[in-house]
Computed example of a mutant assay.
Amino acid sequence: MERKAHTILEEYRNGIEQLSEHLPKTIQEYNRFTGEAFNDGEVTKANKHLMALAISLKEGDEPSITYHMDQCVAMDCSDQEIYESMGVAAAYGGGEAMSQSVTKGFEILKQLRNQS
């Protein structure tokens, strides 16, 4: 059975919160580092999440695909921008990344767009 995007996001956020109870300083530093890495700079925050989406698709990491897809949707990335990121993932990662894009990627995008 396929997990829903909102369930994956909730599980991820709950897991981070739970780990934070045991490793508060580590999680605080991780969140600081990743927050800084994804801030607007010469490259926009939206473009950084599109890059991370492509990497996540290449790696087949469903929680990361879902998280970065959610961020792309929240930042008003167009479907075309997301599709082009899927294409980059497939160009770099081959058939496996293409498979992730056309299965998990499309389904997660559809779920997140329907929630908006």
Rank of each mutant, 00 (worst) to 15 (best):
L19G: 07
L53V: 04
Y12R: 15
D70H: 12
I55L: 12
A52E: 07
S64W: 04
D61V: 08
L50Y: 05
K58R: 06
E11I: 02
H68L: 02
I27H: 10
A74V: 03
A37Q: 06
V43W: 07
S64T: 07
Q71D: 05
E36V: 04
E11L: 06
D40H: 11
A52F: 07
H68W: 05
S64E: 08
K48S: 06
G15F: 06
E21R: 15
T44H: 09
E10G: 02
G41H: 02
N39Q: 15
L19P: 01
E21Q: 15
T34K: 12
H49A: 03
D40V: 03
E59A: 14
Q71V: 00
S56T: 02
I27R: 09
Q71W: 02
G15A: 03
E21G: 10
I55G: 05
G41D: 14
F38H: 11
C72M: 04
E62I: 13
R32Y: 07
Y30S: 01
K45C: 10
S20I: 05
E29T: 12
S64H: 05
N31M: 14
Y67W: 09
Q28S: 14
V43Y: 06
F38K: 03
T66V: 02
L57E: 03
H49Q: 10
R13T: 05
C72T: 04
D70R: 11
T44P: 06
H49R: 03
E21L: 14
H22N: 08
G60K: 01
L23Y: 14
H22D: 08
S56H: 03
L57M: 10
N39W: 01
I16F: 12
I27N: 06
D40M: 08
L23C: 11
S64Q: 12
S56N: 06
D61P: 00
A52C: 04
E42S: 11
G60C: 04
D70I: 00
S20V: 05
M69C: 02
G35D: 09
P24W: 08
F33N: 03
Q18C: 05
L50F: 09
V73G: 03
N31S: 12
T34V: 15
E11R: 11
F33G: 02
V73E: 01
G15W: 03
G35L: 08
L19I: 13
E62T: 13
G60L: 04
G41K: 07
H49C: 07
K48Y: 07
D61I: 08
H22L: 09
N39S: 10
E62P: 00
E42K: 10
E17C: 02
L50H: 04
P63T: 05
T26G: 08
E59V: 05
A54P: 00
M51F: 10
E29D: 11
G60N: 06
A52D: 11
E59R: 14
Y12I: 02
G35I: 09
I65F: 07
K48P: 06
E59C: 11
Y12V: 05
K48D: 06
P63N: 08
I55R: 07
E10T: 13
V43F: 13
I55T: 11
F33S: 10
D61Y: 14
K58Q: 10
V43G: 01
I65A: 00
V43K: 14
N47L: 06
I55K: 11
A74G: 10
